[in-house]
């Protein structure tokens, strides 16, 4: 339980760093931290394969892509415009409402039914693959099509300048 609160607070702090820091590189580093801590949560939830994919695909590939583009574009630190519009006030009110709702939820909730006993091998590669290739077969094939389209789209987008 203590481990959960420790991880949760660190995750929230890193997530806030992504959103609040003015320098995009620090935002990307905060994102790595957040994704890694979420992977720790996945391990605590008995999802080992998903946790490993999280570290390899998210923290490895995606954030490196972000950092690569940030350095390629030489993005300057954002100038913070001090305009608290009506939208900002509305957002603040909504955020407070959410905090209130979550607080009430945490205080008055029914005692949880407890965590169920898991069958052996839950979250393993074998079981996930079995689900993936039976229930999710069509989605799996469509995913490969999506990746192909994304690769072609990214290449076309990135080299438009060269042609013109």
């Amino acid at each position: 339980m203590i481990a959960f609160y420790f991880i949760a607070i660190l995750t929230l702090a890193s997530a806030l760093m992504v959103v609040l820091h003015r320098n995009p590189i620090y935002s990307a580093l905060g994102l790595v931290n957040t994704l890694f801590l979420i992977a720790v949560s996945f391990v605590m939830l008995d999802a080992e394969l998903i946790a490993m994919l999280q570290v390899i695909v998210y923290a490895g590939a995606i954030v490196i892509l972000f950092l690569f583009v940030i350095m390629l574009l030489n993005v300057e630190t954002e100038v913070r415009t001090a305009r608290v519009s009506r939208l900002g006030t509305a957002g603040l009110v909504l955020a407070l409402l959410l905090a209130l709702e979550l607080g009430v939820f945490a205080l008055v909730r029914e005692p949880s039914s407890g965590t169920p006993e898991l069958p052996a091998g839950f979250g393993s590669t074998e079981l996930l693959a079995e689900t993936l290739f039976s229930d999710g077969m069509l989605s799996f094939e469509l995913t490969s099509l999506l990746l192909l389209v994304a690769v072609v789209g990214a290449v076309v987008m990135a080299r438009r300048k060269v042609e013109s």
């Binding site: 998903i50 994919l53 892509l65 972000f66 583009v69 995913t143 690769v151 990214a154 987008m157 438009r160």
Partner: peptide
């Protein structure tokens, strides 16, 4: 967990295309 697998794939595709658009 299977759906998380698909969400990760979509996220990777989204980032690749999005960053290519930003470069353009």
């Amino acid at each position: 967990q299977m759906i998380v697998f698909f969400v990760m794939t979509v996220a990777a595709a989204e980032v690749a295309v999005g960053l290519a658009i930003f470069l353009a």
